[in-house]
Design a protein around this nucleic acid. Structure first.
Lengths: 138, 138
DNA sequence: GTGCATCAAATGCACAAGCATTAATTGCTC
DNA sequence: GAGCAATTAATGCTTGTGCATTTGATGCAC
């Protein structure tokens, strides 16, 4: 007989799957339609754009920050590079590694897409912390 | 300049992505290795096994409950059927629809896999509600 | 009855992801 | 220095997914 807390945990997980599926689906669809980016690509650009400061990161670090597997990231960066949004550059310190630089076009695309992503996060109910989506003032 | 609450929302979403990625990855790997099921297949069997009572559900209903798209579900059910875990049956009331029945083998597989899944949900930190994973008594 | 919009499910096609492997580089030991 | 395990990233192969389309059934208007 299953533990009660196990069952409520399973329920929480099921709910999380639902929220995640709905949100990712909307993000993928709308970011793709409006800016030609998948949600993963957006996340990668976000990591490069923001906290990194110099706008460059090595593959491994980038993979951890964007929660992507090594092979998924390798191909994703390939696509971003093909589209001119990032650039691969040799790493002098460790020649096995590669620096991924965000390009001007990449920054522009990210800045253009950011409001779209933020708006979806605001208007889709996916997290208890999200305030009621529509609160017509007054 | 971005709204502060937007940024914290983006941070929450990023965290959710991380938790989701880690957990799904572990579930997929361990359920696959131990029971030959992906996490989505497990979820589908769970929906058929549990709340449905009679152990049958129509595709559309099943897709909503398991958070799967129509085409993903169609093929997933195809795989489960090939493996003898579910059975498709004509729906007399609406001949466009299809009943998906869980088979005895399907129930057995689910019951065998459930403890594996529950254990992962318990031991992986993915949600504030999860108690500290390892609490060596005393 | 005919005609037509709607809906359920399956499928062709293109693309993304995971696993396993490979190639190149590094750091460590001797 | 030579030898070797560990690490970084890319890639071949197979599998799963989404989008768009197709097939077949339903319900409604006429």
């Amino acid at each position: 007989m299953p533990d009660v807390s196990d069952e409520s945990l399973a329920q929480s997980w099921h709910d999380l799957m639902g929220r995640y599926a709905r949100l990712t689906c909307r993000l993928d669809r709308e970011l793709e339609a409006a800016h030609g980016l998948s949600s993963s690509e957006f996340e990668v650009l976000q990591q490069l754009h923001g906290p990194a400061g110099p706008g460059k990161l090595r593959m491994t670090e980038l993979g951890e920050r964007a929660h992507l597997s090594q092979s998924a990231l390798s191909r994703l960066v390939g696509r971003l590079e093909r589209d001119g949004l990032v650039r691969r550059a040799a790493c002098e310190a460790d020649r096995r590694a590669v620096w991924i630089h965000i390009t001007d076009a990449g920054r522009a695309r990210y800045q253009e897409a950011q409001p779209t992503q933020r708006a979806i996060l605001r208007t889709e109910t996916w997290c208890a912390a999200v305030p009621p989506p529509e609160e017509p003032a007054g």
